[in-house]
Amino acid sequence: MNLITALTSPVGRKVLTGATGIGLVAFVIAHMIGNLSYLPGPEAYNGYAHKLLSLGWIFYTIEILLALCFLLHAIIGISIQIRRWQARPVGYKMYKSAGKPSRSGYSARSMIFTGIILLGFLILHLISFKYGPGVAEGYTATLDNGESVRDLHRLMTEKFKEPLYAFGYPIIMILLGMHMRHGVWSALQSLGMMSRRLSPYLYALAAILGVFVAVGFLFVPLYIYFLV
């Protein structure tokens, strides 16, 4: 079959959403662990950031791949929502979930909202940090080996001292946890990695992962606001 047709078919769309989602989950986990390197001090954090940049083409390839993942994931996610409206033009006057074994809890039903908020957040986040003040604006730090690098540690400390960031960010991270709670299970199901026996375990794994990531991300901003 034609690859493009295949990938835009209902199954193809889900497979792509799942695959890009898994890529994004991997990124999010890496990002979260990276964030935790704030805790030992500026040397660790700035060093980690610098090391990433110095990976050169590998870094840029990953960046492009991630950007593609985000883009595809968002476009397909929105197209699924549009098809959903088309598929049921007259809605129910009364509708309820039938309960177990339905997986359509809050996380599942809010995917499009949490997704759109996360997309918005991502843009703001890139403006604040990736494209935020750098060496040119005086955010410079010197590493132990004498290298002069961008002082992301200071930027982060300043940002999370602002209440809006300190409390806004965690809320977004809870939404991210929710998105992953359904997303991880859904991706595994979309990629066909599910059987009747595995299903309950993978569903639980998705929940654990969601909580893990949300908590991991919550930690640093609250630490900065209250303890630094």
């Binding site: 209902p10 699924i80 309960g99 997986r103 359509s104 599942a108 066909g192 299903s199």
Partner: peptide
């Protein structure tokens, strides 16, 4: 013109025969 599957598994919950969404995974 059916919609996409978002893995809600609401279908399995209402299926009179309790057919598992694991079938959807195997279709994929």
């Amino acid at each position: 013109g059916f919609g996409d599957c978002s893995n809600y598994a609401e279908c399995e919950a209402v299926c009179p025969k309790g057919i598992s969404v694991a079938g959807i995974a195997s279709m994929r």
